[in-house]
Simulated assay, not measured.
Amino acid sequence: MINACCANDKSVSVHAMGAEDPIPEGAIWLDLVTPDANERAAAEAWLGLAIPTREEMAAIETSERLYEDAGALVMTTLLPMNVRAPDLKTSALTIVARRDRIATLRHADSQSIAVAVHRLQGTVEGGRDPGNALLILLDAIADRAADVIEEASAEFDSIASHVFGEGVDSRKSAEYKGMIQRIGKIGLKVARMHDVCGSLERLFLFLSAHAKTVALTSQQKTLCKTLGRDIRSIREHADALDAKLNFLLDATVGLVNLEQNQIIKIFSVLAVVFLPPTLIASIYGMNFEIMPELQWAWGYPFSIVVMIVSVALNFLYFRWKKLL
Results as ranks from 00 to 15, higher is better:
Leu205Arg: 12
Ser282His: 01
Val214Ala: 05
Ala43Val: 05
Ile149Asp: 02
Ala251Ser: 13
Gln121Val: 04
Arg119His: 11
Ser110Glu: 09
Leu88Ile: 11
Asp143Tyr: 02
Ala41Gln: 10
Lys321Leu: 13
Ala209Pro: 01
His194Ala: 13
Leu316Phe: 14
Leu137Thr: 03
Ile234Trp: 00
Lys221Met: 12
Ala4Asp: 06
Met75His: 05
Val83Glu: 01
Leu105Val: 14
Asp100Pro: 02
Met179Val: 15
Thr226Met: 07
Ala72Trp: 05
Val256Arg: 03
Thr77Lys: 06
Leu279His: 07
Leu245Gln: 06
Arg319Lys: 15
Ser268Ile: 02
Thr77Phe: 13
Gly122Trp: 09
Ser208Arg: 12
Glu20Ile: 07
Asn246Thr: 13
Glu64Trp: 04
Glu125Val: 14
Arg99Trp: 01
Thr226Pro: 01
Asn314Thr: 09
Ala240Tyr: 13
Val14His: 04
Ala133Glu: 07
Leu205Gly: 04
Trp298Glu: 06
Ile290Phe: 13
His107Ser: 11
Ile186Trp: 09
Ile266His: 08
Met193Tyr: 03
Gly131Ala: 09
Ala19Asp: 04
Gly18Trp: 10
Ala160Cys: 05
Arg202Ala: 11
Arg98Ala: 12
Val196Met: 05
Ser13Ala: 12
Gln295Ile: 02
Ile28Val: 12
Glu175Arg: 13
Thr76Val: 12
Ala97Met: 13
Leu207Gly: 00
Glu39Leu: 00
Glu61Ile: 00
Asn132Asp: 07
Gly299Asn: 04
Asp230Gln: 13
Ala146Asp: 06
Arg235Ile: 05
Thr77Leu: 14
Ala50Gln: 12
Phe206Glu: 03
Met286Gln: 12
Val309Phe: 07
Gly167Phe: 08
Val14Thr: 11
Ala297Cys: 00
Val272Asn: 09
Ala209Phe: 09
Thr34His: 14
Leu134Ile: 08
Leu279Ile: 15
Ala140Glu: 06
Cys6Gly: 01
Lys244Thr: 10
Ala238Trp: 05
Phe247Glu: 04
Ile2His: 08
Gln111Arg: 13
Phe274Gln: 10
Leu47Asn: 09
Gly285Lys: 03
Leu323Pro: 09
Ile186Val: 14
Asp139Gln: 07
Ile51Leu: 14
